[in-house]
Every structure is written in C-alpha cells, then in structure tokens.
C-alpha cells in the first residue's frame, strides 16, 4: 500500500437544520481498496457517499483525493469532485427517456465534451463488460431491475472515476437478480477499482471488502478487516449489530 488515496477528515453533514447526520467522520482509503460501509438504517452510510459526490454539502471537514483537497463550496469546483467520484444508486436512477447506450454515453459527451463516436464505442464495451451487449438499444422500462442496475454501473464506469461509490445497489432488487449485480462488482474488485460499498449483504461485504467501517448514529464506531469486524467486534453496538445480522 502506498500513500493514502482518499482521506476524509472530520466530515460533518447536516441538513434541514437538524442534528448532524454525520459527525466528525474520518476515513482513509488506499488505492485499489474496497471499503464496506455497514450499520443500521439511518446511521449515515449513504450520507458519506452522497456527500463525496456533491449531492450534500458538508458543514465541516476536508476531503483529500490523491493529495488534492476537494472543494465542495462552489458549483465550479464541484465539477472537479464529480470527475473523480461516480455513484451508483439503490434505485438505479437511469434516465427513463434514454436507451441503455445513451444513459452510459451521455455524461462523457455532455460533461466531459468528449467525441461522441469514441464515447459510444466505450459505452458499448462497458455494456458488454456488464453482460448487456444485446441491450444497448433497450430503454430502462424494457429491462429487469438487475439489468438496469448493471447499466447504472456501466454508466458510472464511463465517467472513468477514481473511486466508485455503490449505495445499496442490490437493496431494490428481487433476490434472484442480486447475484448478477454482485458478480459485476466482484469483477470490478478483481480489476483493482477503488470502491466504497454501502450494503446490507454482509456475506458479500465480507467477501469483497478489504476493510469494513461500522457506522452508528453518524459516527464511525469501528473499522478493520472484515474478519476482525464481523468475528471479533469490540464495541457493544457493533456486537449487537452483528449478532442481529447474523441471526438472519
């Protein structure tokens, strides 16, 4: 492991004048690492991802990526942040009026002003990589949930992000469709993609994550390798959480 790739220091986020959703969260991520974010609902896991990608404004704290501080204060500087992070949402969030191909190709052409022909060739390759070569011209409402989520992953990859953020990407899927999406993520892990994964699929997190962070009430309570966190929880809250999860 080399230098710290992503460093989150003292990040606090609040919205609507309520108490902080994230409180003084710090997390270091090395290049190629896969971080599993676990914790009960409302613990702030998704908030971390949404803040990194600029959907929420941090109240305080700094995010440093590859030695550069990410500036979340202005729209212009946010562009920079969004170049580095790409997010995949629980509800896929595909553009309903666009084909799979266009969903994948639109941001690189529009936001990064790249040549349309190049981007489309890449987009086809990405869709093939997630096993949807046949579906390039399908619209979201013609695809299953699993297929839509794989298009969403291809769309995120098309931005060539440094870090891929996966926000409960299997939570909205029918159980029989979860496998295909998890396979796609496994393949990304093998390719060395740095990822932050929020998930309730504990077995999957244990399998792919290099480290796991446990959040509760906006705080990172414990971090460590999966085996440590799942098998030897130190804090009482994590103990309670794992025992509840493992009973299922």
């Amino acid at each position: 492991m080399g230098l710290t790739f992503l460093s989150i220091q003292g990040l606090s986020v609040s919205y609507g004048g309520k108490a902080d959703v994230l409180r003084d969260v710090s997390l270091d991520v090395q290049r190629g690492e896969v971080i599993g974010l676990i914790g009960p609902s409302g613990s702030g896991k998704s908030t971390i991802l949404r803040t990194l990608v600029g959907l929420l404004k941090p109240r305080s704290g700094t995010v440093t990526l590859d030695g550069q501080v990410v500036d979340y204060t202005s729209r212009a500087s946010l562009r920079g942040a969004r170049d580095r992070f790409a997010i995949v949402f629980q509800q896929y969030n595909l553009f309903q009026n666009m084909t799979a191909l266009r969903n994948v190709a639109i941001a690189p052409t529009l936001v990064k002003k790249r040549a349309k022909a190049d981007v489309e060739a890449e987009a086809r390759a990405l869709l093939a990589r997630v096993g949807l070569a046949e579906k390039v011209n399908a619209y979201p409402d013609e695809l299953s949930g699993g297929q839509q989520q794989r298009v969403a992953i291809a769309r995120a990859l098309a931005l060539k992000p440094d870090i891929l953020l996966l926000d409960e990407v299997t939570a909205a899927l029918d159980p029989e469709l979860v496998g295909e999406v998890l396979d796609t993520i496994r393949a990304l892990q093998r390719d060395g993609m740095t990822m932050l994964i929020v998930s309730h699929e504990m077995a999957f997190i244990r399998e792919v994550a290099s480290r796991v962070a446990f959040l509760d009430q906006g705080l990172i309570v414990e971090t460590g390798p999966p085996a440590e966190v799942f098998d030897q929880p130190r804090s009482p809250r994590l103990k309670e959480f794992t025992s509840r999860i493992l009973r299922h």
Binding site: G54, D83, L159
Partner: peptide
C-alpha cells in the same frame, strides 16, 4: 432520482 444522477454526473 434522475436529478440526483444528473447532478452527481456533473
């Protein structure tokens, strides 16, 4: 959701 995706993609 679509707006979030568009925002997140810049």
């Amino acid at each position: 959701e679509e707006m979030d995706a568009a925002t997140a993609m810049g």
